[in-house]
Design a protein around this nucleic acid. Structure first.
Lengths: 262, 262
DNA sequence: CGCTGAATTGAGGGAGGTCAAGTTCTGTGG
DNA sequence: CCACAGAACTTGACCTCCCTCAATTCAGCG
């Protein structure tokens, strides 16, 4: 499936403006912007697809905002450099995910997005939403609304992250992370119980705002407790219930759990 | 100024749908939604104003989303109850601030908003943005765009918060908080160097994800170092430069600072 | 006056960061 | 094929920032 997707992308690789990348896209039904591409074959002519190699940047923080992106295949990483020069990973993007929505207001991207492996993205130019000619198009408003919905879900995801960082200890944060990755793997067509992590320990620790040693220790701990099986980047989830229990409570509240279970 | 604002509000208090609350509003020029109220006097007829007493709720998390709000006067607090039943303060709203934007996507508010003292808000119904009749109105698109811009700034504010919680230690987080409050006090027409905190220590500690004792100790510490003067909720900023320096670096990186200063 | 809630201050402990050393995997060149 | 370098990851020892627990003070109020 991934191989096939890459083949299709390869066709479009050198022609940035494919006739209609969506027509050949196998993710059509699950695509968050499929509403833009319904009906007429020409309706998606403004969408362009491109592949990126490992480490390659889709855009940098500060680049002029040109449009939003949807992941077709592969995995991507958002990050930015703070004032002190330190990197901060702000998110990972799986097939079907949208990125580049932040910075619509400021007119420039707030963070940089890089490919974690070979992958491809669709670009939807912002003009689709703002073009005055489409003001008469009844679908223009629909598009705008879907944009608002996407931004709204970005906000709730960020709120979750704030809660994670603020109120959860390392173990719980890690459990939530594993479940999130597993679910999104599942949504992207992979096996949600047995997958290969697309990012390094360094990326994970940076994203979770933990020391890399702490993340490593948590992998080992969960492995030792039989919750997961981990070997380098290959992860199997052995006890999802336990993982969900860990994601529910901080370490200090475990006594309750124990007494309930024992 | 505040007194006068409250007078005006008192007039509108019992008539939820005032003829045009914006006409009498002195914050007009600084209002983020003033674009909606330009020109025709009737254009703002959909906007309604209301006052709230200390502790009163503007809306609860889970309430049906009906529109966004702008603070006319007073101070408000956003919070929600997490799965474990614990409260989490998500933000403070000053005069001119917009709140209630989150939850547009889900159709219901994501958090509860309560008045920290007596204050008033304007409500802008969501229909303003979605009403199909306004689809032909060239200003409808403008309104939608301003909504997108507001959501975008919410996202960048949240990103900042994530960075604060994830990468900053308690002292730095507190310094950033004080500067933020001071600036927003200034923007709201108060003295940015000498103001009365509108929220309790409990609210601050919850918002910053610190123990209340830690916040109290930081107040005392900054006071002892001559950076601020604090007496109960009255705060004066005595050394803004030092505060900005503290907001730039974590405790561990202070050695550099010291050697530079000493 | 005592009561209550908000805030301060002190003492002690633990989660997680830092430092350091060791191990495994990958790529490169002999 | 092996040797080597370097990155990625693991594991251990130690330390510190901040949380928890507890006692005290202070303002507001009946």
């Amino acid at each position: 499936m991934t191989i096939q997707a890459q083949k299709i992308v390869a066709l479009n690789k050198h022609s940035l403006h494919a006739a209609n990348p969506c027509a050949a896209c196998m993710k059509k039904s699950g695509c968050p912007v499929s509403g833009f591409t319904d009906n007429a074959s020409a309706s998606a002519s403004f969408i362009s697809a491109r592949t990126f190699r490992t480490g390659e940047l889709v855009f940098k923080a500060g680049d002029k905002f040109e449009g939003i992106y949807v992941v077709r295949s592969g995995f991507f990483k958002s990050s930015f450099i703070d004032a002190s020069g330190e990197m901060q990973v702000t998110g990972f993007h799986f097939p079907g995910d949208v990125f580049g929505i932040d910075g619509i207001g400021g007119g420039q991207y707030g963070d940089s997005v890089a490919a974690l492996d070979t992958g491809s993205v669709c670009k939807i130019p912002f003009s689709v939403f703002t073009d005055s000619r489409s003001g008469n198009d009844p679908r223009a408003q629909e598009r705008m609304l879907s944009l608002v919905r996407m931004m709204s879900s970005t906000i709730s995801r960020d709120r979750n992250m704030i809660f994670n960082l603020g109120k959860m200890d390392a173990r719980r944060r890690f459990a939530v992370f594993l479940l999130d990755i597993a679910d999104r793997m599942g949504n992207s067509g992979y096996n949600s119980g047995d997958f290969s992590l697309c990012m390094s320990r360094t990326d994970i620790s940076n994203y979770l705002c933990l020391a890399i040693e702490t993340v490593s220790r948590l992998f080992s701990q969960f492995h030792g407790q039989g919750i997961i099986h981990v070997e380098r980047r290959q992860v199997s989830i052995l006890d999802r219930d336990m993982l969900e229990a860990l994601a529910r409570d901080n370490l200090a509240n475990d006594d309750r759990m124990m007494s309930k279970a024992g």
